[in-house]
Simulated scan of single mutants.
Amino acid sequence: MSGSADTHFAMRTAKNQAKVCREFAEKKGFQGSGTAELVDFLTNLPAETISENIGFQHTASGIISFCPNFDNDFFPKPMAELRKEAPKKPVMIGCAEHEGLMFGII
């Protein structure tokens, strides 16, 4: 399947991802206000609860709830800048006849 890490739904700013995270926690019962409380709440959720986000609607762009973000840590710069600095690598591209059908179920 094709895809791009440079699409609006595959990368978010850290601020927007934090907002999605808080919305998710509130859906799961979080009622606190502080960041430390939020981290503690999410740390203590079972993995099954975190992976199940059926019916969860967030206000940030895209359909993916949790995705990479520009946090100046793992991604220290915007993707376009990182690509300019990265060594060139050979790639193989193509397309499949029915690859878009996957989006029909979403």
Rank of each mutant, 00 (worst) to 15 (best):
N44A: 12
K84Q: 15
G29A: 10
C67A: 12
E85Y: 03
P76R: 02
I63R: 13
T35H: 10
G62R: 04
L42C: 14
K19W: 01
F74Q: 08
A36W: 05
S65F: 02
E52Y: 07
G62N: 03
L38H: 01
N16M: 03
F30C: 12
F24Q: 07
F56M: 05
F41V: 14
F30N: 12
F74C: 06
F56E: 04
N69C: 02
A96Q: 09
N69K: 01
D6Y: 07
Q17D: 05
K84L: 14
S51C: 06
P76T: 11
F75A: 02
N69A: 00
F30W: 14
S2L: 04
S33F: 04
E48H: 00
G55C: 12
C95P: 06
N72K: 07
P46I: 15
S4E: 12
M102L: 15
F66C: 14
C67P: 00
I54L: 08
S51K: 06
F103L: 06
A25N: 04
T59S: 12
L82V: 13
A86R: 14
V20P: 01
S4C: 13
A36R: 07
I63V: 15
K77Q: 13
L101F: 06
K27R: 12
S2T: 09
G32E: 12
G55H: 10
R22D: 06
M1N: 04
